[in-house]
């Protein structure tokens, strides 16, 4: 698998403020990559550097093997881009916006009609001037223009802002479909559940630096699981059972329900509870949001 996006040592300052400070990451072709961080962490500056909209102070960016500094046009020919917080041309209709943007790309916007249908942009919607569009409709149009020409790499900065849950679900489906077809998606989002659902790997950026990169399931799976053990009757002595690798064990007053955190190998835990009068063992994997905040706290 080749690299769809490679960033090495990216540095970008605005006056005395260093927005991005040595960011390096690599996204493979066919991957859905999540880019996480709070406001002001450097996500958008990193993306705008990739797109050639801001000039890095240092570092190297390659899109599908093309150095952005030397062949930006060649690199962008393979990219679909959805920026954060945008407005379109108010005097144009939605259809005209798509036609205009479609005409600027070397590939024909072959998927425009299908994507409009998927995101419920009707003919009458598309014939209205975009100044009359709601935030969600503009966002849908933004998604369509990013995917309409079948780019190999889609870079989306907060792509689901303003979308209702149904449309968010459709966007996640579109991302998965794009990846199944061999395409790559670089997804920056505040919506952690969406990133968790859609991405294969994530990078967490904090104060302009990457503080964690890895498979999404590792970021969550390596961390704690929330477990609840329910017994039929209290154990002799009334105390909690021996639960290997369990932390923060809390028993309810009846002595039959124990809540605890667990990390690492589950095998020892399962063997330990096998001989107990177990009614139920609930194991909830930690959510990405919890892992995200954990990473942030540990790096602070």
């Amino acid at each position: 698998m080749g690299e769809a996006l490679r960033i090495e040592g990216l540095v970008k300052s605005y006056g005395p403020i260093t927005a991005v400070d040595g960011v390096s990451l690599s996204v493979g072709e066919g991957e859905v990559f999540g880019f996480l961080g709070p406001n002001g962490a450097g996500k958008t500056t990193t993306i705008r550097s990739v797109m050639g909209l801001v000039g890095p102070d240092a570092g190297r960016i390659e899109i599908l093997g093309r150095d952005v500094a030397h062949d930006l046009a060649g690199a962008l020919a393979e990219v679909g881009y959805l920026p954060d917080e945008f407005a379109l041309w108010p005097s144009l209709t939605g259809r005209e916006c798509l036609d205009y943007l479609g005409s600027l790309h070397p590939r024909p916007p072959a998927r425009a009609a299908e994507l409009c249908e998927r995101f419920e942009l009707t003919g009458s919607d598309l014939d209205r001037q975009v100044r009359r569009y709601s935030r969600g409709m503009k966002q849908k149009l933004g998604i369509v223009q990013a995917f309409q020409h079948g780019p190999r790499l889609v870079i989306a900065d907060e792509p689901t802002g303003g979308l209702d849950p149904l449309m968010r679900e459709r966007f996640v489906g579109l991302v998965a479909e794009h990846a199944r077809g061999g395409g790559t998606v670089f997804l920056s989002s505040h919506v952690l559940s969406e990133v968790e659902e859609a991405t294969d790997r994530v990078a967490v950026i904090r104060a302009g630096r990457i503080v964690r990169t890895g498979p999404t399931r590792h970021l969550t799976g390596e961390r704690l699981r929330h477990c609840t053990l329910v017994l039929r009757e209290p154990l002799p002595g009334g105390g909690p059972p021996d639960l290997p690798s369990a932390e923060d064990v809390v028993a309810d007053p009846s002595g039959t329900t124990f809540r605890f955190e667990h990390s690492g190998d589950m095998g020892a835990l399962l063997r330990a509870v096998a001989d107990l009068p177990v009614i139920e063992l609930l194991v909830e994997p930690e959510r990405l949001s919890e892992a995200f905040f954990e990473v942030y706290r540990s790096e602070a």
Binding site: R48, M51, G52, L53, L72, A73, G74, L76, A77, V79, Y81, P83, F86, A87, L88, W89, L101, L104, H105, P106, Q145
Partner: peptide, 9 residues
Amino acid sequence: SIDFVLGRP
């Protein structure tokens, strides 16, 4: 809106 235009080749 310039992002859409210059985000293309």
